[in-house]
Amino acid sequence: MENVRRVISVLVANESSVLSRISGLFAGRGYNIETLTVAPVPDSNLSHVTIATNGNERVFEQITKQLHKLVPVYKVIEHEEMVEKEMVLVKFPIEASLADIQALCGAYNGGIVNVGLNMFIGMVADEPCRVGHFIEASQRYNPIEIVRGGVVAIER
């Protein structure tokens, strides 16, 4: 069976140790985590966890079933028709061309978000593969630091 990339959303009770239950499940059963993001769902006592993972069909089925078995898990959404976004922050030396990078960020739904004495920071939020392209393109401006945020996804 072929390995494919998948994105899963997990709605969980917003309580301590729930994230360790999920990450521990992945570690203990040998499932991959590509990215994992978590934040509270507004106006509820739930949290929304988004996990990008990869594996074959059987592994993926096990992941969703094992997640379902965790007591604090309300819902597991296996994304199919989704809108998926990831954010990245890139710090550039002040010598780099502000205009170039402004244009580059603009091409990927972002912009310059902070400028200091010795550096400035660009931000982009886009599909994960496009974020990859952006990072690649930004390499020639000698970035000092790159921080990717992990994906969030929502079903259409």
Partner: peptide, 16 residues
């Protein structure tokens, strides 16, 4: 205890 027993219990609680 909750951390150690997570993979070998059906569920566990730390009472707060």
């Amino acid at each position: 205890a909750v951390g150690i027993s997570r993979p070998c219990t059906k569920h566990n609680y730390l009472v707060r």
